[in-house]
Design a protein around this nucleic acid. Structure first.
Lengths: 334, 334
DNA sequence: CACGTGATAGTTATCGATAACATAAAATTC
DNA sequence: GAATTTTATGTTATCGATAACTATCACGTG
């Protein structure tokens, strides 16, 4: 069917169909008036020649593209996978593509990625969190395209932010365990570069402090703890502080690992030790004991971030701050 | 710092630096001889103006880009996240970007994605698996860029394939359980659209059949089972066939769910029921009982797929078939 | 000291599309 | 049936860079 050889251009199609390039362009973009007959004929030639449009040229001419840049800290973290799913599904429906970069929780890498991606003149850009280098912020602020900072919210986003209030989430989960009567708290997590986790942690510490209690929070990891790290982390934490009666984990996956540690070590949950996570992942809700956690709307954060950009590209206005909230799941581990 | 207003072009920089556009271009690409002084000066102006190169124009002129298209079936599946990590890390090092599309295990969506992504003239393309529509295959075969089909291998890839032999993997895991003396087999999984899973399943069925034994494999799911589905799936399977002594899961996540079901239901693993997964994910290896499974080199598949493309772009040749193999993990669940 | 040689910088044509304007043919109006 | 829209198509200039070629200039050499 498609012949090999030199790359086909619009001209090839035009010649084959005996029309001008402009007509081909119009047919392919469904723009302007084209007779049914011409359209059919042109499309036939496109098919015959196996012609694929060159969006580089098109975008250069229109200075418009259907690519949306997305920069997230990690793909290993289940949370961002769900966010990404939301984004790609929403974009796909509108005929847009996501160009993904992984910053690995490094603001410097993020800066490099933003810079590099900008050079492709994306139609919009989605970044995670609100903390960026000065240069990143500068580029984004002057990009002239819709920017969404997702996951977290704050009063003054660069452009628009969509997510939840992590401080409030931290306070809420701390309150929950406090109200259940726990008094000896521990924390297993990582928040050196993960600003949102850090915010939650700070809120937890503060809330517990305001009840004149304290929390044991050793610096255990170099990255957000996964299942294995959560499991090992709880063991280490209990070595340091054996008399804890409740432990916060910085995410559900680590908390699930913690639960497994308890099962293995014969620690009774929640009577001997309460466990709380963050995210509300499926896995935690399907453990023998339903995990106490905070459910966030990850998929929706992705979906709405994408939609927000598409809407603004279509001329709609947007609130600068979109709070999708969160929900306490009072599980069986507390 | 960066002024707002009209987008800067290379010309703006050229004028500001009092040199030709070509000189600016040379400085920015580190190409051709440029005096130290001019280079410094030009870079200063770039900085001052906050100029960001327009790769659309550049790529159009050179018909070369630093974007690699990647199409995977799913992001929710942990396997592909690790693959993606491998890809992005490898690409990043070389200054390339990944453009990701999710096919959702649909060959039609894959076709649409391939078509759409090709229009951006990526430097290379990575797709998952070996099964594609005729049109997809056609486009890829005539794309004139390096193509990698990853995850699975077969004798005649479109261009290059990198992965493992799923039939052999199926045979191996079946052999393992057979050698342990299990005789009443069940299967929890999904393989309607997931060709690789289907291959493994077929090999399992065949191997078991050749020992004059059979396997109970109801059609339970609409998508690859996750943790919750694995858990529920095992329950359903045991309802149908209570006397099984060994169950294969199509992936580790589902198998882990199955283990949880056993813990909850007081089913003794492995004495009463053996469990086997596929992938060798971290989680399965950190359960109270180490999961019996097949370990695949997911990260490496991604990494090497990306490297393969980069190498070929640099003129190196490549074997058409790269088998990264697999490894049986004889865990404690069998 | 005239001349080749390498280092540095500039010119012109081009990549493949689309915007904006111009034109031709068909349909409508009076 | 001439005038006026409307519909369908073609022309030309342009988007922002780079390839390929050309033009300087400084410098050492026989």
């Amino acid at each position: 069917m498609t012949a090999s050889g030199r790359r086909r251009t619009m001209k090839d199609v035009a010649v084959a169909a005996n029309v001008s390039e402009m007509t081909v362009s119009r047919v392919l973009r469904n723009k302007g008036p084209i007779s049914k007959k011409t359209r059919r004929h042109v499309l036939q030639m496109v098919e015959n020649l196996g012609y694929v449009q060159n969006h580089l040229a098109g975008s250069l001419a229109t200075s418009r593209s259907n690519q949306i840049a997305v920069i997230i800290p990690s793909l290993v973290n289940n949370v961002f996978t769900e966010v990404m799913s939301g984004i790609t599904v929403a974009l796909e429906k509108a005929g847009y593509n996501a160009v993904v970069g992984i910053s690995d929780y490094s603001l410097e890498k993020e800066e490099a990625l933003v810079s590099s991606m900008m050079s492709w003149r994306p139609a919009g850009i989605i970044v995670a969190n609100l903390q960026h280098t000065v240069k990143t912020r500068n580029i984004l602020a002057n990009a002239g395209i819709p920017v969404v900072e997702m996951m977290n919210i704050a009063p003054n986003p660069i452009d628009v932010c969509i997510g939840l209030d992590h401080s409030a989430a931290g306070t809420a989960i701390a309150d929950h365990l406090l109200s259940k009567g726990y008094r000896h708290f521990g924390y297993v997590g990582w928040n050196r570069e993960d600003r949102a986790a850090h915010q939650r942690f700070q809120a937890i510490v503060e809330q517990i402090g305001s009840n004149n209690l304290s929390i044991v929070a050793p610096d255990l990891f170099e990255a957000p703890p996964n299942f294995a790290a959560g499991k090992a982390g709880l063991r280490q934490l209990l070595d340091i502080a054996p008399n804890l009666d409740a432990v916060f984990f910085s995410n559900d996956t680590a908390a699930t690992g913690g639960m497994i540690h308890c099962i293995e070590s014969g620690i009774d949950v929640p009577d001997q030790l309460a466990i709380a996570g963050f995210s509300g992942l499926d896995t935690g809700q399907n453990m023998p004991l339903k995990l106490t956690t905070i459910k966030t709307r990850r998929y929706d954060i992705g979906r709405l971030s994408a939609r927000n950009i598409l809407n603004r590209l279509a001329g709609q206005a947007s609130d600068p701050v979109v709070d999708l909230g969160f929900e306490i799941i009072a599980g069986e581990t507390s």
